[in-house]
Structures are given as C-alpha cells and as structure tokens.
Simulated scan of single mutants.
Amino acid sequence: MPLPDCRLPAVVLCALALAGCGRHGARHPAGQLPVAPVYEVRDDPATRKRVGYQDQVVLASEALRAGGLDVADKKARAAVKIDPSRPEAYMLLAQIASSRGDNVAAGSHYRKAADVAPSRGDVLNNYGAWLCTHGQPAAALEWFDRALAAPGYATPASALANAGGCALDAGQPERAERDLRAAVQLEPTNAYALESMARSEFARGRFFEARAFSQRRLAAAPATRSVLQLASQIEVQLGDNAASSRYLQRIRNEFPQDAAPNPRG
C-alpha cells in the first residue's frame, strides 16, 4: 500500500531556511551541494494491522456487491486472518454464505461476529434477525434485547422493529405491539415496522387500524407482493371488494412472475 503523502509543516521548513541563512557565507567544497536529510516513515505494527484489515474488508465488500463471491470470500478470510477479534469480516462471510444458500454457515458466522463484538448493537441485531428468520424467534428476542442495551447503538428502531416482528412469530402479541409502536415512534417510515404493525392489527381483528398501517407502509417504500396481499385481505374484511381487487390487480401487474394471488391469503 502506498505510504501517505507526508510533508513537513511550513513552520519547520521556515526554521530550516532561517538556520541556513544564519550560517551566512558558509562554503561547501567545490562541486558539492548540501544534502537534505532522509526521513523514513514507518507505521507501527498496530497501524499496519488495522489498515491491512480495513483494506481486505473493503475489497471483500466491493467483490460481494459485484457478485464475485469467491473473491469476496477470499478477501474476508484474509481479513479474519489479520485480525480475528473484529466482527466486520465475519458478517461479510455470513452474507457470502447466505448468497450461496449455506444458511448453517451463515448463522455460524453471524454468531462469531456477535461473540467477538458483544457490545456492538448492529452486530447483535444481525444475529437476532438471522435466528428469527430461521425458525428460532424466541431465542432471537434475547439478542434483540442485548442490541437495545448496547451502549451507543445508533439505530435502535431497527432492533425494535425486528423484535416486534419476531415477537409476532413467537406468539407474543403484547411485546410485538410494544416494540413495533416504539420503532414507528423512533422512525415513522420504517417499512418493516409498519408492515408488522399492519399484520398485528389484522391478527387482532382491528381492521381499520390495519388499513392505516398498511397504507403508511405502501407510502414508505416500494410495494412487495406480501404487502399488497395483506392490503387486499384487509379490504376484504372491511367489505371494500373494489379496493381489494385493485390491490390484486397491482400484484398481477407488478409481480407477473408470481402465481395468481389468493384474495383471502
């Protein structure tokens, strides 16, 4: 890696110039000019380790975005070899494994990232999300709680939304409503929280409330088939078959590769 462009501060250069002027009349042997000192810049081992790790993580991330899974895997493993105590490379390995369909390996990498960074809220949230989407919603809630308790966690709405949606799957509707409402309060356009609130209200038979959250979800982010399907089901329960049909038509128009939607789920 090229060394940084290290320049002497201007004040130092001026001091050197003045020092030369102070030796007015100094002579040098014929044919010889004064030689400037050679400055050698060396990074300490900790700096080299940090920079090397970051370089490999960046290269792995770029390769992953470009679809180069083999290169991404190689670079991420190189980062782990440089510094196995940091979580970013493990999370990249988890994403690579998921892209390859190896969910067991992905879970293992997410857990390793959480083990080496037990105070990183984003890392703990990622492992909880993996657990929730792989049939372990009750276990996931513990990791979301850890994420929310992590000092300095910058995006608690994400963990709250995940916890609320996961609580629905775990059969804990009271916790689901509590966490989802907190997530929406912190981040009113959180698409996952809004969709999960619509599902929660629908499951409780509160169809007008479900409609309101469904409409907010559709305004917050591009529609998905599942969101449009839920919106259609809500309108059926409210007796507005025309609105339900419009949502079904959107599914046919926007997701033609899917099977014909079922108006009742």
Score class of each variant (00 low, 15 high):
Glu40Arg: 11
Glu40Ala: 15
Glu40Thr: 14
Val41Glu: 10
Val41Trp: 10
Asp43Met: 07
Asp43His: 10
Asp44Gly: 13
Pro45Gln: 12
Pro45Val: 11
Ala46His: 13
Thr47His: 13
Arg48Asn: 07
Val51Leu: 11
Val51His: 12
Gly52Asp: 11
Gly52Ala: 14
Gly52Phe: 10
Tyr53His: 14
Tyr53Lys: 07
Tyr53Ser: 08
Tyr53Pro: 01
Tyr53Trp: 08
Tyr53Phe: 14
Gln54Met: 09
Gln54Leu: 12
Gln54Tyr: 04
Asp55Thr: 03
Gln56Trp: 07
Val57Gly: 02
Val58Leu: 05
Val58Asn: 05
Leu59His: 09
Leu59Trp: 01
Ala60Lys: 03
Ser61Cys: 05
Ser61Arg: 04
Ala63Met: 07
Ala63Tyr: 09
Arg65Ile: 12
Ala66Gly: 09
Gly68Cys: 11
Gly68His: 06
Leu69Ala: 13
Asp70His: 13
Val71His: 05
Ala72Cys: 08
Ala72Met: 00
Asp73Met: 14
Asp73Val: 09
Asp73Ala: 06
Asp73Cys: 10
Lys74Asp: 13
Lys74Tyr: 09
Lys75Trp: 02
Lys75Glu: 15
Ala76Phe: 01
Arg77Asp: 08
Arg77Lys: 15
Ala78Ile: 01
Ala79Val: 04
Val80Ile: 11
Val80Trp: 02
Val80Gln: 00
Val80Tyr: 02
Lys81Tyr: 10
Lys81Pro: 00
Asp83Cys: 05
Pro84Phe: 05
Pro84Asn: 13
Arg86Trp: 06
Glu88Pro: 01
Tyr90Leu: 06
Met91Arg: 03
Met91Asn: 02
Leu92Met: 11
Leu93Pro: 01
Leu93Asp: 04
Ile96Pro: 00
Ala97Gln: 00
Ser98Glu: 09
Ser98Gly: 15
Ser99His: 03
Ser99Thr: 03
Ser99Gln: 04
Ser99Cys: 12
Gly101Arg: 12
Asn103Cys: 10
Asn103Asp: 14
Asn103Met: 14
Asn103Arg: 06
Val104Glu: 15
Val104Tyr: 08
Ala105Ile: 08
Ala105Pro: 01
Ala105Phe: 10
Ala106His: 05
Ala106Ile: 04
Ala106Asp: 09
Gly107Lys: 12
Gly107Met: 07
Gly107Trp: 01
Gly107Ser: 11
Ser108Pro: 05
